[in-house]
Amino acid sequence: MIRKVAVPVAALALFVALWELLVWANGWPDYVMASPSDLPQSYARFWGLFLTGAWQTLWRTVAGLALAVLFGLLLGMIMGFSRTARDGLYPLLVGFNAIPKATLVPVLALLFIGQHDFNTVMMAFLISFFPIAVSVGIGLSTLEPEYRDILRSLGASRFTIFRKIALPKTLPEFFGALKVAVTLAFIGTNLVEIVSPHGRGLGALFLSGQTNSNYPLMFAVLIALAVLGIALYYAVVALEKVFAGWAERPQG
C-alpha cells in the first residue's frame, strides 16, 4: 500500500525537481520555459478561473465520453453480431478515424454556429467512440461458440445470451478501450476550447495566457490539464475494478 502511493509520489517529485533544475541551469527566462516555482503564483492569482475552466472542460469531456460509450456500444453490438454490418462499417469507421480531428473544428463550428458547448461535446464524442466500437465489436464477434451453446442448447433467447454471457465477457475489452477513449475525449474537448474563438474551459484559459504573454499561466494550465486527465483516467480504472475486476488475475 505504501509502495502504491510512495513510488508515484517520488517519481513526481523527481520530475518536478529535474524540471526546475533544467530551467535554472540554462538560465531560461519564464517566456522560454516557466519553472515549477513560477506556477503557484499563477494558481493563486487565477484560482477562480481555474475552477470554472476545469469544471467546463470536465463536464463536456464526460458528456462527450458518455455519448461515445452509448454510440460505441451500439455500433460495436451491430458489428459484433452481423458480418455484413462489420464488412460495411469497418472501412467507413477507419476512414473517419483517420481524418485529423482538428479539421473538423471549423466544420462543426459552421454546422452549429455559436453552439460552443454542443460543438465541444460533439468533438469529444467524435474523437473517442472509435476504440469503443471496435473493441466491443471484436469482443462480441470472437466469443467462442461454446459460450453461446451452453445457453442456446437450453433454448435461451439471443437477448438473454447477450445479457448473461456476451456483454459481461466483453467488459474487459470495453474498459481497455474506455481508457483510451477517455484521454481522446479529453484531447477533443481541449482542441475545440483552444482552437475556436471565444472558447471556454481550461483550453480558453491557455489561449488567454498566450495572448497576454503570461507564460507561467500557460504552463500552469498544462499542469492542470494533466492533473484532470489523470483524475479522469483513474476514475475509469476505478469503474473497471468494480465491473470487470474479475478479469484481473492474481499476480504471483
Binding site: E144, E146, Y147, D149, I150, L151, R152, S153, L154, G155, K164, I165, P168, K169, L171, A244, W246, A247
Partner: peptide
C-alpha cells in the same frame, strides 16, 4: 433446442465473472 439437454465441452467454458456456485446455477 430442448431444456431437457445438458452439454459439456472440452473447454469447460465457465464464466470468469461468476463464482463456481453461480456458474453451476446458470442453467
Amino acid at each position: 433446442p430442448r431444456r431437457t439437454v445438458g452439454m459439456a465441452f472440452q473447454n469447460p467454458v465457465l464464466l470468469e465473472w461468476r463464482s463456481i456456485l453461480d456458474n453451476v446455477i446458470l442453467p
